[in-house]
């Protein structure tokens, strides 16, 4: 049981906003989102194995407005978590800890993940228009 009389840290309210705070919490948030998204992958496979009828239920869900919003969220989550995960791995190797590098790589995770998400959905849209 937590002893709440202890002084609690970090005292987030005294910190000035820094991009590294955002990349850190986003890694956790996208990790949790992706874990839920994995259930969708499992559902897709089970539906595909279960026959055309079952698969139609699945595609109807992912093709619905809610499904598409979720897919956009999951695709960005994957790209962000992937980029920032690589950043984590590089830092685990002991590199990139200079403050300038740390801030720059934070922005790189955010920007590259947004670009990749945009690229994938641009591809989906153009293919959808062509089909």
């Amino acid at each position: 049981m937590a002893d709440t009389r202890r002084p609690l840290s970090p005292h987030l309210s005294v910190y000035k906003w820094q991009v590294q705070m955002v990349t850190s919490i986003l890694h956790r948030a996208t990790g949790i989102a992706l874990s839920v998204g994995l259930l969708l992958v499992a559902w897709a496979l089970i539906a595909l194995a279960g026959g055309e009828e079952r698969f139609k239920h699945f595609t109807a869900f992912v093709g619905s407005p809610v499904g598409i919003i979720l897919l956009i969220g999951w695709s960005w989550s994957l790209f962000y978590h992937l980029c920032n995960g690589i950043r984590h791995l590089v830092q685990d190797g002991g590199y990139g800890y200079e403050i300038v590098q740390f801030v720059r790589s934070s922005w790189a995770s955010i920007i590259v993940s947004l670009l990749l998400t945009a690229a994938v959905w641009a591809y989906v849209l153009t293919l959808g228009a062509a089909a």
């Binding site: 994995l38 259930l39 992958v41 499992a42 496979l45 089970i46 595909l48 194995a49 279960g50």
Partner: peptide, 17 residues
């Protein structure tokens, strides 16, 4: 429990296909 069940179900589905 959820992860193991979903993994097994997913793997079985791929194998069936």
């Amino acid at each position: 429990f959820i992860a193991v069940l979903a993994t097994l179900a997913g793997v079985l589905a791929v194998l069936r296909i």
